[in-house]
Simulated scan of single mutants.
Amino acid sequence: MKRLIIGPAWVGDMVMAQALARRLRRLDRAGSVHMMAPAATFPLIAHMPEIDRGWLLDIAHGRLHLHKRWQLAGSLRSERFDEAIILPRSFKSALVPFLAGIPRRVGMIGEMRYGLINVALPAASANRRTVDEFVRFAGASDLAEDERPRLRAGHEATASIARLDLHNDRKLVVLCPGAEYGPAKRWPAYHFAGLAGLLAQRGIASIIVGGAKERALGQEITAGLEPGLVHDLTGQTTLAEVIGLLARADVVVSNDSGLMHIAAALDRPLIALFGSSSPERTPPLSPHAHILSTDISCRPCFKRDCPLGHTDCLVKLDVARVAAAVLDRLA
């Protein structure tokens, strides 16, 4: 069977979607799996060996652009797909498979898209992990351990590493201070600065990574630190280069974010920091991940911004505790 997966727009969800592709490959080794994704997550497809071909949905997030969707659907018609699996629950995400005439279009019940999908799964449960909801599309009730996401690293980070003069014999910690969802998932920048300073005192290099939106965070973290062992690359790398840097890391420290899921899928030693969200819902899927959080009564609230205005769930996750976890994994 020839299948097209419509991938998510969030990096973390896109990583978890690889588990579905791995499951489909196991069920139908002679079949073919393609994936379509927007620009924000499309580069991940190149790191998923289970995907035969990627299709770029070159439309800004939230925009309809019906003409562009019609053009893309026209390109897909000649592929003669048997099935489309539509992971996002929006109306727009179901349009291209419908316009392409793909006969079986599977998706969760969502934004008034009856007819656009013709095989409807019940809406996702708030009590189940996102990855388990994804593998439901392949008939599995839960994720099998040997089907968890496993990204393949490339060599895109070579130039960035060379530019920073990072020696292979020096320990490297990669810091991921961003979280696209909102501030209630971000460990404070001054805590990241404290951690980077402690590591630098021990001769351990750290790199700060993130997109253009994290530039202010990177600058805040490095503002009071001596240059040399702390390198801010926020907004200066492609997603593919960040994947390469994460693959090079001896330890990754990350908020609950897309980069956390990438690090987990690369099997890097990972310190995952949880604030308003819960590892019961979106855990890092790796035996090498160590989750840190506080036990204050108001978490998890799943809010973008702290409704109480203090973000104590992350403020009270102190630097010494995180540093101890990092140093333990570097030992």
Rank of each mutant, 00 (worst) to 15 (best):
A124S: 13
H310R: 06
V33E: 06
L151Y: 03
R128E: 14
H34R: 03
C176I: 05
C298H: 10
M108K: 15
V135K: 00
M1H: 11
E220L: 09
I51R: 13
D250L: 01
I45Y: 04
R186A: 05
A223E: 13
S257Y: 06
S286H: 01
L57Q: 11
H231Y: 09
G182Y: 11
R26L: 13
L4G: 10
A73W: 02
G275A: 08
G235N: 04
D256E: 12
P183R: 12
V251L: 02
P183K: 12
L4M: 10
F81L: 09
A144I: 10
V253C: 10
V322I: 14
D28Y: 06
H47I: 03
A153F: 01
S297Q: 14
I296P: 03
K2H: 07
H155G: 14
G110I: 05
L233D: 06
M35G: 08
E226R: 14
K303S: 13
A124W: 02
T234C: 15
G194E: 13
A162D: 15
E156Y: 02
N255R: 04
L27G: 05
Y114S: 12
P43D: 10
F134R: 01
A323R: 08
G228Y: 04
H288Q: 14
D318R: 15
H261A: 10
A21P: 00
C298F: 08
L87T: 14
V131W: 08
Y181M: 03
R113L: 06
L72M: 14
G31K: 07
A21E: 06
A179W: 05
L76N: 10
A265C: 06
I221Y: 07
L266F: 02
A126P: 02
P287S: 15
S125P: 00
P300F: 07
V174W: 00
L64W: 13
I207G: 00
L27Q: 15
P279A: 11
E79I: 00
A189S: 14
I271C: 08
G235L: 04
E50P: 03
H231I: 02
G54F: 04
I271H: 03
R170W: 01
V135E: 02
I204P: 00
I262E: 11
E145L: 13
C313G: 04
E133A: 11
P38Y: 05
A37D: 07
I59A: 12
R22Q: 13
L198K: 14
E79T: 03
S32L: 09
D58V: 00
H67Y: 08
V174T: 12
I109Q: 15
R69Y: 12
A196S: 04
V209T: 15
L166E: 04
D305M: 08
I6K: 01
G31H: 06
A123P: 03
D58N: 14
T41N: 06
R128G: 03
P43I: 10
W55H: 15
S276H: 08
C313H: 05
G275V: 05
K303C: 08
L314C: 06
Q71C: 11
V230M: 03
P183F: 09
L151W: 02
T311Y: 13
R152C: 12
A249Q: 08
D267Y: 00
L66I: 15
H34I: 02
G12E: 11
R53V: 02
L285E: 11
A153Q: 09
L246K: 04
